[in-house]
Design a protein around this nucleic acid. Sequence first.
RNA 1: GUGGGUAUAGCGUAGCUGGUUAACGCGUCAGUUUGUGGCACUGAAGACCAUCGGUUCGAAUCCGAUUAUCCACCCCA
Length: 460
Amino acid sequence: MKKNIIAPRTLSGFMELLPQEQAVFNKIKSVLEGVYSSFGFFPLDTPVLEYSEILLAKAGGETEKQLYRFSKGDTDLTMRFDLTVPLAKYVAKNAGNLSFPFKRYQIGKVYRGERTQRGRFREFYQSDIDIIGDGQLSIINDAEIPAIIYNIFTKLGINDFTVRINNRKVLNGFYDMLGFGEQSQDIMRIVDKIDKIGQENVIEELGKIGVETEKANRLIEFIRIDGSCAEVVSKLKQLGDNEIYLQGVSELEQVTSLISSFGVPEKFFKIDLSIARGLDYYTGTVYETTLTAHPEIGSVCSGGRYDNLAEYYTERKLPGVGMSIGLTRLFYILNEKNYINKNDFGSPCDAMIIPMANDENYSQTLAYAVKIGAYLRENGISTQIYYENKKFKGKISYADKLSIPNVVFIGEDEIKNGVITVKNLKTHEQQTLAQDKAVEFIVSNKKQSGSLVIMGEEDA
RNA sequence: GUGGGUAUAGCGUAGCUGGUUAACGCGUCAGUUUGUGGCACUGAAGACCAUCGGUUCGAAUCCGAUUAUCCACCCCA
C-alpha cells in the first residue's frame, strides 16, 4: 500500500539552505551584528505583519502591486516589504521613550510579491541600520554609514566593492537648472540605466518623454563627470549657482572627505552622479554598493539621507540616514560564485567525540564521553558526541563530511589513563593529552581559520 | 503586469530526425574482515521522462492546454 506522498516543494523566491550553507549565512549575519554593535547601534525587531494602513501610508504604484496582503477576520494585514516603514512607525510610537540620535540595526525577512529572477527573491533578509535625529542630524552621520559598510565588507573578506555616493540635492538642483520640473523622477530612472543600455539609448528614451537632445547631452555629460572625489567636487562647483545645487555639492564634499577620515581607502568609494535608484524618500546623500566584479546582480546595499522619516505617523520631524544590505542577495551571489569558505565556516561545532567501545563497555565509555563533552564546552569548545553504535569508519567520516575540524577519540586506554586523544582532521595531527592540554590544542588550531569570503581568481 | 525559453532519479545533465529493460556524473546508503576519515574499488537504493489531453501500430521524443521554473522588461536589496 503506497501512501499518498505530497511532493516537498518550497515556494519560488523563498530561499532555503542546506545546513552548512545556513551555518555560513548565520556567521555572516553575526559579523554584521558585531559591526553594528561596535558602532553603538541597538538591535531592534518588529513584527512581520502590520496593519495594512500602517505599511500603506505612503505606498503607491509598484510597491502596492507587490504586497502580500490579506485579511484575518476583520483585520486588514500586510507583510512588511522593507524595514524602514516599520522603523518609522516604531520611532513615532515610541519617540517619548527613545533617546536621540536613535541608532538601531535590524536584520529581518521582508516580503515582496515580485516576479522572481536570479538574485531576486520574494522573501529575503534585509539588514538595516538607521540613525534618527530629533529635529536635526549632523552630516557626519552620512559619512559614518559608508564607513560601516566598509567595515562589514572587509571583515567578511570581500575586497571587491565600491560604495557609490551621490546627493539628491545635487541632482534636483541640476535638474532645476536644466528646467526639468515634474519629469525629474522619470529622467533619473532613465539616466540610471546608462550602464546597462548605453548612452545612445538613454538619449533616445529621454527624447521619447520630451527631453531635447541638447539637454540630454548636457545631462549625460554631467553624470559622466569622473575622477577622485575631490576632483569631481571641484568640477561640480563650477557648474552652477542654484542654491539647492550648491548645498548638495557642499554636502557631497563634506561627506566624501569625512569618509576618508573614518579610515576608508579611496578605492572603496566614489562619487557617481548617475545613481538614482530607490530615491523616493531620500533627500540628500544616497549610496549604492555593488560588487565590482558582478554589477549584473545589482545593488547589494543601498541607502541614504531622508528629511522626515515618520511624517505619516507623527508631527515630529525626524531626519535620518541609513542603509540596507540585501543580505539574501549578497549571500546568494557569494554562494553562486563559490566565494564562501564553507570548509572553515560551515561546521556545526569545533569537535566531535567518538566513543570507541564494543557492546560490553559501551555505557562506561559513553559516560566518560559525556563528561569530556561537558568539559570541552565549559572551555568554549562547541562539541558534539557521536552516540550511534556504528562502525568507526562511519563515525569519523561523519565528522569529515560535516567539516568538523577536530575529533576526540575515547576508548579503554583513554579512560584508564584519564586522557583523551584529539585529532585535527585538517592537519592530520593527533595527540593524546590531558583534558586541559587538549583544549589548548583545539583552540590553537581554531585560530588559523581564514576569512568567511574568499574572492577568488577562479572567477571566469 | 508584458514578452521569450525550459521542464528526464535529491542535484547536474545525455537521450540526434518517435521504435521494445531511459543512460551518465555528483550526492546518498552498504561493503572492501571489528581504534583512524578524506582517495580508490565493488555494489545498492532512487525516474509511472511536470500534469492533462491529442497525433500514431508505437511518444521522454511530435502537437495543444495547464502548471512550475528561468530570462528580459518593469521595479528593486
